[in-house]
Write a protein that binds this DNA or RNA. Sequence first.
DNA 1: CGACTACTGCCATAATTTGGCAGTATAGGT
DNA 2: ACCTATACTGCCAAATTATGGCAGTAGTCG
Lengths: 229, 229
Amino acid sequence: MSHAGRLLDLIQVLRRHRHPVTGRALAAELGVSLRTLYRDIGALQAHGARIDGEPGIGYVLRPGFMLPPLMFSEEEIEALVLGSRWVADRGDSRLGVAARNALAKIAAVLPADLRDDLDASTLLVGPGQPIAAGDAELPTIRQAIRTERKLEIAYLDRYAVATRRVIWPFALAFFDRVRVVVAWCELRQSFRHFRTDRVVALAALPVRYPRRRQALAKEWRKVGDIPDP
Amino acid sequence: MSHAGRLLDLIQVLRRHRHPVTGRALAAELGVSLRTLYRDIGALQAHGARIDGEPGIGYVLRPGFMLPPLMFSEEEIEALVLGSRWVADRGDSRLGVAARNALAKIAAVLPADLRDDLDASTLLVGPGQPIAAGDAELPTIRQAIRTERKLEIAYLDRYAVATRRVIWPFALAFFDRVRVVVAWCELRQSFRHFRTDRVVALAALPVRYPRRRQALAKEWRKVGDIPDP
DNA sequence: CGACTACTGCCATAATTTGGCAGTATAGGT
DNA sequence: ACCTATACTGCCAAATTATGGCAGTAGTCG
């Protein structure tokens, strides 16, 4: 059995077993070594498969691995398509790909007649002003937000004055022309907004910031207007 | 990209393209040679994937093939949420409700941890300029587009000159401040764009227009720039 | 504590994949 | 009838890569 198809087989094997299966059993069933099995499990997880592995127990395919059939009204489909088109047009490119992928996955579980509505949707997003750069950093920033990690950035303010600071990013806002990171700034000890196209360098620190993202967001909404950095 | 995951990627790429894709395009997207792509397609087919390949045309994934992983990634969920937020903010109110409902339905089938991502998503849509009115007519217009019905409208052009005409609406564009119906105008016998806030009255006629919506849209894209009504 | 199991790093070896080329077949357009 | 675009196959040398074994860590269960 070649490596290629083995992953697909592994999924099927996991599906068959409702109860935890040990890695050793899986390895035997697939005819590979235990070491290789661990690698395969890792590969699947990296591709979005939701597999639980517990020491002393074994592996189980978590429920929710597959999308059940979904039903939407025509209007809801149009809303999803329009939203995804906007993201594809105005978000950064990674997010745009994600939007298209999400739509494709939804299409895969839609009844045939609704699937046609997806293509047929004639709601268009008007052409936007070109978006200021900063595309490369955005995935890193989003990742930092998701994992509540500190970011160290080199930043140019509106007068082109350079500063270097550590921030706690917790939100990302998409305006018509610019994108802005909302974060707590350790340098200024307050909430600040950073235009991503003025971030000239950034590094994700392996340090989690000490407060919950949601708490920061909530407090930020209360504070109101924020001075520029 | 290693061979292993590439097959899973290939499935997702195929899912994304609903129309035939050439092998060359797929190979480019995956970053492998054409020769290798043919081998990969073969490997997938050997594992039960139903992929149609026609000489001179390209490949299409036949629907009904639910090979995993078919679950949203965090990024895809963020994209869906961001898109829906934009629709809720900039679309008309009916569409906004539809966007929220669609999201709720998606949330209902998500495993618990992913559902949290949905609520916690911290991608924000910047506040937009207030959108010119015309909210009340939009659902009617969308309905007419979906069912390919003629519309009779009373319209004010940019010099406030009133006209009354019958149009064949087939698309709706959302710009930053205005919304525009794209239609064939029986009065002018050509494609026109109508700002919805300048439509002062409209009535859906019980008559289907004689051409397919998709055909109109295709031709319209070819024509290029359209004069205002 | 001990048994069992998930997981990771390292490394030499072996296997597999890869890409290029040359050639065939089929569909659609002119 | 011809041309282009595409799907598809065989072959082969080169090299990427997967593999398995071992050693070690960490978590769960009893």
